[in-house]
């Protein structure tokens, strides 16, 4: 495995060097976007949170060398108590796209999206994360190499990815030595109907890493102003003698322009961390309102106010519900578009 990894890295460097040699300037785009959030959280009648914070402050620099080569570097600045200065910094989407060899597709190398379920096109229409991200089934981004492309005539897309398997927050010496393999497909048989599935094969030789096989089936039904997103997730985890299974599902209908510039997004999801145990899973009910002050489109600024009410109810009979009220102002702008 180690030899193979070294060989692949060398091959990648060789291909990239030869492709980049002799290239001219190209075009750059700088994009910034930010999420400023107010959170009020109650457990039963006790106030747990009552705070303002910058939850995301992306600064993205994209550079297009040619029609076939594009790169991106993204820094995420955010409010954090872990840092003495009250803010943290994370590296996000940092990769190069090479549109070679694969018709209607590309090779992507670097820190990139995990092409699993709904996580890779999750645009936070509710403030809450995608279910697979929230329940830590997969990380939204990971270090690796992927190939992927569009099926001709807009009939869908496919992706294959080799990643570390531990997400973008882990980069040091404690990484699992076994790489993870991901496959994803989405088919749009008729306009408005999308079905898809993804599977991530994670291996582990030793603790604390687990051998897991997270799998997801997704669906999307879009018709006029309604766009319903659905997904069903499951995974087995643990060793052969003590396997545990998790599963969950989400339904999220998006109701666009109910009033001018106002979308309403109800969402329901449920997660069962261990299917052999009863009463251990949370259920979330979300009602979201998105008001677009300025609708974002290619390279143009967008400003949106999100208002979410979220109720989390655990299955245990005597558990108290957690209620959250979130208000978030999102804005983004760019120097131009490719």
């Amino acid at each position: 495995m180690e030899k193979w990894r070294v060989l692949m890295s060398l091959l990648g460097v060789l291909i990239a060097s030869s492709l980049l040699a002799g290239l001219k300037g190209g075009e750059s785009q700088i994009k910034a976007y930010s999420w400023y959030r107010y959170t009020y959280e109650q457990e039963d009648t006790d106030t747990k949170k009552n705070e303002f914070a910058v939850k995301r402050g992306y600064l993205r620099w994209e550079h297009q060398f040619t029609d076939k080569i594009k790169s991106r570097v993204t820094l995420d600045f955010f409010s954090s108590d872990k840092d003495p200065h009250g803010a943290g910094l994370k590296l996000k989407d940092t990769y190069v796209d090479l549109k070679y060899l694969i018709p209607e597709g590309k090779i992507k190398a670097g820190l990139q999206k995990t092409y699993f379920g709904l996580i890779y096109d999750w645009d936070y229409l509710t403030i809450q994360k995608a279910l697979e991200d929230k329940e830590k089934l997969v990380s939204s981004r990971d270090y690796g190499i992927s190939i992927g492309g569009n099926i001709p005539n807009g009939f869908g897309e496919w992706n294959l990815e080799i990643v570390n398997g531990e997400g973008y927050k882990k980069t040091g010496g404690d990484l699992n030595t076994e790489l993870a393999y991901l496959g994803n497909i989405r088919i749009i048989p008729i306009p408005g109907i999308t079905v898809g599935a993804s599977v991530l094969n994670e291996n582990a030789k030793e603790s604390p890493y687990e051998k897991r096989l997270p799998t997801v089936g997704m669906g999307r039904v879009a018709y006029g102003p309604i766009d319903v997103w659905l997904e069903y997730l499951w995974t087995d985890r643990g060793d052969k003698d003590n396997p545990t299974n998790s599963q969950g599902y989400m339904v999220m209908p998006i109701l666009k322009d109910v009033l001018p510039n106002l979308d309403i997004i109800p969402r329901y999801d449920h997660w069962d961390p261990n299917t052999d145990e009863e009463d251990d899973g949370p259920t979330r009910y979300i009602l979201g309102f998105n008001y677009h002050f300025v609708k974002a489109s290619k390279g143009k600024p967008g400003v949106m106010l999100q208002l979410n009410f979220e109720r989390k109810q655990k299955e245990e009979e005597d558990s108290k519900p957690e209620n959250q009220l979130l208000a978030q102002l999102r804005w983004e702008f760019a120097t131009g578009a490719f």
Binding site: E104, N150, I151, P152, N153, G154, F155, G156, E157, R186, I188, I190, P191, G192, T194, R220, A222, Y223, G224, D227
Partner: peptide, 15 residues
């Protein structure tokens, strides 16, 4: 473009 076709079809638009 194929990508535009895909986005359109996924949103229920049949160009």
């Amino acid at each position: 473009k194929t990508k535009e076709m895909k986005t359109a079809r996924s949103k229920g638009i049949d160009p």
